[in-house]
Each structure stands twice: as C-alpha cells, then as structure tokens.
Design a binder for these strands. Sequence first.
DNA 1: GTCTATATCAGGATAGAC
DNA 2: GTCTATCCTGATATAGAC
Lengths: 192, 192
Amino acid sequence: MSTDRRRAILEGAARVIARRGVRGLRMEELATEAGVSTALIYYHFKDRAGVLRHTLEFISDRADRYTSDDEDGGAHDARRELERSLLLEFQDLPEVRENSTAWGELRASAVFEPELRGDLARATLTWIHDVADLLGRIRPTAPAPALTASAERLTALLEGLSTRWLSGALPLAHARELAKEAVTVELERLRD
Amino acid sequence: MSTDRRRAILEGAARVIARRGVRGLRMEELATEAGVSTALIYYHFKDRAGVLRHTLEFISDRADRYTSDDEDGGAHDARRELERSLLLEFQDLPEVRENSTAWGELRASAVFEPELRGDLARATLTWIHDVADLLGRIRPTAPAPALTASAERLTALLEGLSTRWLSGALPLAHARELAKEAVTVELERLRD
DNA sequence: GTCTATATCAGGATAGAC
DNA sequence: GTCTATCCTGATATAGAC
C-alpha cells in the first residue's frame, strides 16, 4: 500500500545516506534498497531534492522518539535524562549511526543547498530548546538566555564530536567522555 | 608558465569549492574560474580526485599561515592569542570562508572516503595540540590530559559552530559570542 | 500506485593539433 | 603546456502500459 512504500523509501534513503552520504545518494541504488522502481520514488517525492527533504524530516522525527516526554521529573532525573539523550548520539547501533550520519550530511549539504536550510533550522531549534529545557530543570534559577547559550554550545559540540567520530578521527568512548564532561562544565557554568 | 597555471587552478578550486562544495565542483566551472581549458586541468592533476587532493593540501598549507609562532608570550598574550586564533574561523572574508568551507567539506567527505582520513587526522591533531599549548600557557598548573580534553572540546565545538554558521543556521556574531564564552567556560574548568 | 523502458543531459575525460 | 572539439558514461527524470 502507498503509505508503506513511502515509508520503505524513506527508511531506505536513511540507510543509503548513512552508507554513501547525501552526495552519494543515487536514485537507482535507493530504488533497489527500498525494493521499488525509480519511477515510484519520483511519483512520491517529485525529485531528488524532495527525497532529501522528506528524509531529513523523517530522520528528525525518528530522533525525537529518543527523547522522553516526562516533564515532571526532579533535578536528578533531568540530569540523567540529559546525559542519556546527549550520549544517545554516540552508540554504534545501526539506527543511531544512520541518524547521526544523515544528520551530519544534511547539515553539511545545507551549506550549499539553501532549500535544505529551513527544515534543518527548525529541527535544530527544537533540539536546542529541548536541551535548554532539561538544563533548566537541573538549574531552575538560571536565566533563560544562559540556558539557551549552554544548549547551543552543547548541541554544536555534539555535532562536532559526532562528525569526528564518524570520520574515524575520534574513538567512540572518547567522544562520549568529552560530551559527558561538557555537560558537567556547562552545568557548573550555570550554577551561580 | 606552468607553475603559475597550476597555482591558478588550485586557487580557483578553493573558490569553487567554497561556492559549490566538493560535490559541486565541476571541471568546466573550475576551468572558467581559473581561466584555462579543462584539458589543462587534467594535464596537471590527472583527474578530478587529483584536483581535490591537491586543493585540500593547498588549503591546509594556507590555513597554517594564520597561526602565529610566538612561543614566549605571557598568560595575557596567550589568552588573546587563543581567542584570536579561534575567532579567526568566524570572519566573513573570502579566504577565511573558503578555508572553513573546504575544511568542513573535507571533514564531511572523510566520513565516506577513508583515503581522506589520514591527512585530516594529522591536521586535527596539530590543531588540538596548538590549542592545548595556548591553554597551558594560560593555566600553567593544569594537568596535560585536562588541557588536551579542553582543546578537543573547543576545536570540536568550533567545527560544529562553523558548520552551523556556513549553513545559515547561526549568525556570525552569535557564533563568535558562543565560541568566546566557551573559552571562558573551559578556562574556568581548568582553574583549580 | 507501480512498473518497464527510455529520453535526456550534465559533466568527466581524452584525442590530436599547435 | 595549452587549446578546441568531442566522446561517452552515468544519473536524473519522464512516458506510457498495467
């Protein structure tokens, strides 16, 4: 059925992008991966750029599922939740790798393809907001701008570390350690 | 003369890559940009991959010139030098933009092209080392591992912020501010 | 909605003259 | 060393049947 195929294509796109990059995504390889014809991809997504856009959306939705919705935990829970959600980026599981890779690719592609920027900016903002929110639950007295700045730094750092990890420049365990310590450092900053 | 043309091609390649990305580099556009024929590019660099390799080398050599060599400044100078060298990444000057863009492209491409990883790792290590060195001059009593960890976080953050800037997700001034504050935060961390 | 077959074309690469 | 002219592959996209 239609919806299933659509989804299969998006899942396939995430896999192919993780394997070849946005730059390396070939419509025919995607078709094979998803078990459909190229024509069907064009039918559903109009063109290559459309595939990219929807895949980005798909991926960020999927990443949202990582974040729990519990809003009423105490500071201790928030701290654990924060670390959990940030370190989730650094796991050698296929889906996580896919998400990280695809996210990095989309970010990098957006430098040259302005059409991608809107969605990317939206997703980034949401992410920053979520992190700022968690920080705020740990440091209830910290002013909002400081929380946002810390969240911006943490998320940007995560992206930087993630790319280094994926490009083989940084072992996974070390990346996790650096990220974890960054949380400590920023929380210290937000203390007074 | 031969050497001039070679150089013109490499400079042109840096500009084109900054504008279109590694993937967007077209041999013909490069030829026009450099004022030569496509055939000459192949004559000098064998193929497209050769152009890429030599351009990346060209660019990292050029970026080295940014870093000053003065080794004997006091803590105050070191702090300024640190901020200067880190914030240098965030300027809207053609050459800086070219270098940042190409660096980001290189980093992103390395995720899928292992051949690129060696050079990249080397250059990254040098950078981390330089930053750790400056941090050490400001905090002479801090242990080396802590200095390295801070340098790793700062440089990874820079890469993250840089990509956000170049992809239009983060205004230049804001990126500078976040980077500057990150220096403060890390130096605070290294205090005790 | 989905496929097969194919048009179209951009762009990498080379031949050969100068 | 450098150019003009051209070949040819690989990839996007569409036509049209089912």
